[in-house]
Every structure is written in structure tokens, then in C-alpha cells.
Design a protein around this nucleic acid. Structure first.
Length: 511
RNA sequence: GGUCUGUUCGUCUAACGGUUAGGACACCAGAUUUUCAUUCUGGUAAUAGGGGUUCGAUUCCCCUACGGACUACCA
């Protein structure tokens, strides 16, 4: 088996889409599994769509999720440069070879002319204009124009493109690792532009040339490329590289959560989840798009989640580290159907990874939030909070967001609890409880509990009846971590203070 | 419209042609927690439709339906 060399080849036209991350991941898993090479190539042949900062963003995103590049942009390697714009001079000769061999030709039709032709045909009700074996003889190209005129045009540096001369009728077959054999009739393939009038190659040429030169063994890319795969096969053939042609694997698409269609940024915005791995500020609009990282998703959770969108190990194991994924991954087990994106599952993975951390390792999450709020907190206190909160947290920032009451006394009280649970009995118990607690110098969970038991017994009221009221007095909310532990963490003075405040405020309100 | 491609619980998916069609998320219920949540246990829920092939189809073939991608001098 030949050396596994795979590439992830994004265009720097904006932030890296989450689907792109999955494509990169599958490439990476295959590379690592077979001790191969992961290459990052930047396909920036469209100068009009270049977005500054996009390349850096891609690099950072891959780094964040833990996809390591062995060779390519930002890393270098034996096939440098890895940015197609910097490889521009390379492509020319291959296009020239095709011309010389008669498998490609010059075309002088301007964009406007092509546009007009399309319009005309559309007006006649003909669905689509295709520049191909049938129509090319009506167009302005080196096949229809006299040789000397072509020569003259070229010498006069008139604008032209180079198109592939696709055969009129021929079966093109390729074996896709995911879909099996795919057969397309060449009459359905148009004479694709290989070299643009600005001297840059199109995706098709650059892609094939680079994959060949970089000795790529497997092309793993999105399903949107499947229709042009036959064209690529033709290119390999005409360039004489059929033997070296990589194996293709076209990945199913990531679909929007509701309804149908490809997952887009719009859907993500609408449903309130990120579409990009990292925060991204669009340089044109200055608009900020939230990233997964900044939203609190852990990279290992993202990887696990993404890996399972379109692939599964065939066992019931769901939690996989990157190493385990590398071990278990096979292209054969990648599904064919598009996968709807379900952010709930992503959250579940995030919870799993958060819960799997030791309490000590959780502390920095809380401390980071607190630092931002300029709140001091000892390590011991942070440890207690994390340990008591970890079972009910989805994101790292939840330690703070759902645990503000550890640091701030409530100023408002959950209305439902108040209206349902706040009555004369609770006031009686809570008052007695406060006074009792006040006698001690400090509180432990045990003390809080035993005191509560004795107070309620004395007054003949069931503990269950007032627990919610107690919680709302201490935290302001209806739910939260173990209440006795909460009181221990907050401390005796604060507990007494908050009880007094609640008794004062709520009584007035109800009264 | 054309070409390619796909279709198993609401979602992600499993099932060498033989399973009571399995798991996970979500949802619901019960248990436990003297509160909410956690946790545990259980439950609802799927082979798009129609034809074949076969002793037997989720699985193989065909048709239909419904999706999706592509159809640029964009990738």
C-alpha cells in the first residue's frame, strides 16, 4: 500500500465552516491511522474572493481542535510552497501540455458573450447552456478559429482561457471509497475552464496538479465535489497520471437541523449556535460571529461530536479521544447520507467531557470567569464550588453563570417559589433557623442540616415544605446544587445576612 | 429542467439475507435525593411507497415519491 498522504485544502474566503473542520478531521484521522502525512494546502486561486485573515483563522482553528499539520502552509515541507497563488507558474506548463496534446484549447469568448448566450438560450426555454462538445463549435476558440488568427490573438495578448476538451460521449467511471462506483457520461461534463484569463488556474486544474505533485493518496472532501470528480479523472488521464491518481472519498454533507438543505451560517444564527470554530469578525461588515471555543465548547467534545456526524465505530461506545478515533476510524464506516446538525448532542458531549475532568482541573474555568468579574476567590472555595456544580454544568462559564449566588447575595427571588412556598410557616421556620445559625461561629453542611432538622421538628413543620423557600432565600433561584453544601461554601455570616434580608424583603412583598 | 447522489425512531446511527429491528441524544414516567437538578430504572418512537429476486428481505434489483449536491473565468 502506498504511503498515505492526505490534504485539507480550504480556500481563504472567510472563516472555516464547522463542516470544513469535520473534513479536516477525517483526513487527519486517516493520516494518523496509517502513519501518513497530513497536508494543509491553501487554495487561493480566486483573488476576488480572498479575505484577509482567513488563512490565519484556518490555522488557528485546526490548532484549537488538535488537528496537527505535518506539511503545508505554516509548516513548510518538501513540496513547498503550499499556497496555490505562490505556485502560479507551475500550472501553466500542464495546461500547455494539454493544449499540445490536443486535449485542451484556447477560448476567447468573453464573460459578457457567454452571459449573453446563456440569456438567449434561457429566453428560448432551453434550460442551460453548457460549453461542451456540441456548443464549442459555435464559440470563439482555437478549435473554430483559423490557426493564424488564434496565433495573432495570443500574440496580441488578448484575453483567453484554456478549456478542457471533454470527449463527446464516453463513460467516465471512478470508484469512490464511500459511494462505490460512480459512472458519468462525458456528455454531461462541460468543457471546464482550466486556466482563467488572469493566468490563474481554476480549482480543477490546480487541485489535480497539486495532488499529483504532492503525491496525495486519498482525496477526502465534501460531497459537493462529486459532480466534478469525473472531470478530475479525465484530467489525470490526459496528464498521464492515471496510475498515480488518488482514491476519492466524498463525504456526506452536514445538513441544517430543521427542514432540509446544507447547513449554513444563517441556520446557525437562527437557531442560536455557532457555525465557526473560533470567533470571527468579518473584515467587510465588522460583524462578529461567535465561535465554538468562545461559546464554551471543549475541543475534545467538538472532535468527538464531529467525528460521529457521518461516521460511527459500529460499537456502542460514544466517547472517543482523538487517539481512540485514530485507532477506530475507517473510511468504510463513513455513511452516505447527509447528517442533520443537532446542537443538543454537541452539548451532551461537552457535558461528558466537562464531567470527566477532576474537580481540580475545573477550578481554572471558574477562576477565569471570576477574574473577568474582578472577584477574588480562594482555591479551596473554588474547588468546593466546582465539585458541587460539576454535575449540572454544560459549559465552563456555567460555573460562574449558574453559581453567581456564591459571590453575590440575591436581590431578587424566584417568583414562582415565593408565591407557592412562602407562607407564615416558612417565615416562622426561617426566622428560627437564622437565629439558631447565628449562634454558631461557622457552618458546615452537616451543621446546616442538623440545625434545620431540629428547628423544623421543634416547630412541627416538615423539612420538605420549607426547603425551597430556604433555597430561594439563600440563592434567589429555584434550583441549584446541594443546599447544605451551598450554605457551607457561602459561610455563616452571609447565610444569616441573606436569611434576614429575604425575611425582610419577601415578607413586605407578600404582606 | 438536466446530471449525480441519498432515504432505518424527532435527531445521530447499528443490524455477513434469518434480531422481539439494537444503542445514543431528546422526550415522557417511576425510583432515589427530607428541594430543584444530578443519578438510576423503565417507556413512547423507525426500515418512504410499490413491485420483483428469494424458503426468507432493513439488507439485492427495478419503478415511484421525497430530499440533497452540482449545473461560473467560485472553490
Amino acid at each position: 500500500m502506498r504511503d498515505v498522504r492526505v490534504r485539507f485544502a480550504p480556500s481563504p474566503t472567510g472563516a472555516l465552516h464547522i463542516g470544513g473542520v469535520r473534513t479536516a478531521l477525517y483526513n487527519y484521522l486517516l493520516a494518523r491511522k496509517y502513519k501518513g502525512t497530513m497536508i494543509l494546502r491553501i487554495e487561493d486561486t480566486d483573488q476576488t474572493r480572498f479575505v484577509p485573515g482567513a488563512e490565519e483563522y484556518i490555522l488557528k482553528s485546526l490548532e484549537w481542535v488538535g488537528i496537527q499539520i505535518d506539511e503545508g502552509v505554516g509548516k513548510g515541507g518538501p513540496h513547498a510552497p503550499y499556497r496555490q497563488s505562490e505556485r502560479k507558474p507551475l500550472y501553466r506548463q500542464y495546461a500547455q501540455k494539454l493544449i499540445d496534446d490536443g486535449t485542451a484549447y484556447y477560448a476567447f469568448d468573453t464573460t459578457q458573450e457567454l452571459e449573453a448566450t446563456r440569456e438567449q438560450l434561457k429566453a428560448k426555454g432551453i434550460a442551460n447552456f453548457q460549453y461542451d462538445s456540441i456548443t464549442r463549435m459555435q464559440m470563439k476558440n482555437s478549435l473554430t478559429l483559423p490557426a493564424d488568427e488564434v496565433k495573432k490573438k495570443l500574440e496580441a495578448a488578448e484575453a483567453y482561457v484554456i478549456r478542457l476538451k471533454v470527449p463527446a460521449k464516453e463513460e467516465i467511471r471512478l470508484t469512490d471509497l464511500i459511494r462505490g462506483e460512480v459512472v458519468v457520461d462525458s456528455s454531461q461534463v462541460d468543457d471546464k475552464v482550466l486556466m482563467k484569463s488572469d493566468g490563474m488556474p481554476t480549482y480543477h486544474l490546480a487541485n489535480v496538479v497539486d495532488d499529483y505533485l504532492m503525491k496525495i493518496s486519498h482525496v477526502i472532501r465534501g460531497e459537493e465535489w462529486l459532480p466534478s470528480a469525473p472531470l478530475h479523472v479525465l484530467l489525470y488521464r490526459y496528464l498521464g497520471w492515471e496510475r498515480e491518481m488518488p482514491q476519492f472519498a466524498h463525504l456526506p454533507l452536514l445538513l441544517k437541523p430543521d427542514g432540509n438543505g446544507k447547513l449554513s451560517k444563517r441556520d446557525a444564527d437562527k437557531m442560536g449556535f455557532p457555525i465557526f470554530p473560533l470567533d470571527w469578525i468579518d473584515p467587510n461588515t465588522n460583524e462578529l460571529a461567535k465561535g465554538y471555543k468562545e461559546s464554551g465548547y471543549l475541543p475534545e467534545a467538538m472532535i468527538n461530536f464531529l467525528a460521529f456526524l457521518g461516521w460511527n465505530p459500529g460499537t456502542t461506545q460514544e466517547l472517543f479521544s482523538m487517539e481512540q478515533l485514530i485507532e477506530a476510524f475507517t473510511i468504510e464506516r463513513v455513511g452516505k447520507a447527509g447528517a442533520k446538525f443537532d446542537i443538543l448532542k454537541a452539548k451532551w458531549f461537552n457535558e461528558q467531557y466537562l464531567k470527566s475532568k477532576t474537580d481540580e482541573n475545573l477550578i481554572p474555568y471558574l477562576l477565569n470567569s471570576l477574574a473577568r468579574e474582578r472577584i477574588d476567590c480562594t482555591k479551596e472555595k473554588a474547588l468546593k464550588i466546582c465539585s458541587v456544580m460539576k454535575e449540572r454544568v454544560t459549559f465552563p462559564q456555567d460555573f460562574w453563570l449558574n453559581g453567581k449566588f456564591f459571590f453575590h447575595a440575591p436581590t431578587q427571588f424566584d417568583e414562582q417559589v415565593v408565591s407557592k412556598k412562602w407562607n407564615e410557616d416558612t417565615v416562622k421556620v426561617l426566622t428560627a433557623y437564622r437565629d439558631e445559625m447565628d449562634k454558631h461561629s461557622s457552618v458546615t453542611a452537616e451543621l446546616a442540616k442538623s440545625t434545620l432538622e431540629s428547628v423544623t421538628t421543634n416547630l412541627g413543620i416538615a423539612v420538605g415544605k420549607i426547603l425551597q423557600a430556604l433555597r430561594v432565600s439563600i440563592t434567589g433561584g429555584a434550583s441549584g446544587p446541594d443546599l447544605m453544601m451551598t450554605m457551607e461554601i457561602i459561610g455563616k455570616d452571609e447565610v444569616v445576612k441573606r436569611l434576614s434580608y429575604a425575611l425582610h424583603t419577601i415578607k413586605v412583598k407578600v404582606g
